[in-house]
Design a protein around this nucleic acid. Sequence first.
DNA 1: CGGTATCCTTAAAGATACTG
DNA 2: CAGTATCTTTAAGGATACCG
Lengths: 128, 128
Amino acid sequence: MDTADEVRLDAPHRELLDQILDKWSLAVLNELCERPCRFNELRRAIPQVTQKSLTATLRRLERNGVIDREVVSTRPVAVRYRITPLGKTLRHPVDVLLAWTARHLPAIERAREEFDERDAGSRTGPQT
Amino acid sequence: MDTADEVRLDAPHRELLDQILDKWSLAVLNELCERPCRFNELRRAIPQVTQKSLTATLRRLERNGVIDREVVSTRPVAVRYRITPLGKTLRHPVDVLLAWTARHLPAIERAREEFDERDAGSRTGPQT
DNA sequence: CGGTATCCTTAAAGATACTG
DNA sequence: CAGTATCTTTAAGGATACCG
């Protein structure tokens, strides 16, 4: 027997995925894969994110070593965010994942509709 | 110009990932990839999950068409959860992702330590 | 410009009790 | 056995204001 199942879904792995695949991280990583960005460039590129959430996302990604933060002490201060080599290695797994969603989203939307219809029917109660 | 960036991170895709890669879904999918399971088998297999969260996770996965739920009207009732063909297609992207975490977790833990040290230092303030 | 700090609202998670 | 219902606690998210 092997411990693969345990290892694969161990707390540290789950926690890592939570930190890197959360609501805004993919969008940020995607931007920074294209080019280095300043804080407000990222805000403009991802209009729905609030300043607070963007800051939190950037700190988390920085802490995990997938992006880095360079403070340029001009006046006023400029901050440049960049993807790190480690961050670049994320591209492939993320691409595979997004390829899956792109490919199967239609089937999933059909499944949802069917489920919701069954569910509506079961609330009404089936006929004799 | 292409719309790849927009498409890749469109709301439906993000939402889908949120529903399928959430806290407990990976663990459930992993179990069900091995074998069909009953509700309480899953509870035992994933000891930290509460009954409420497990129910919610199973419903969500069922709604998205990646698992199915069969009620065996014995006495008392038995419920069998199974992975669907669509659910099986998730295995590859998830494996790629977990391979990434397995490979890079050490580097990430180093990055975290370095970050936390820098952070602690900046709170204390650097010496003259 | 690039943030912190604060307050407030809401949504998710946990504990407990009960049911077909 | 496999849930639902309810209540409570916790944490995430947004709005606003201010600072180096």
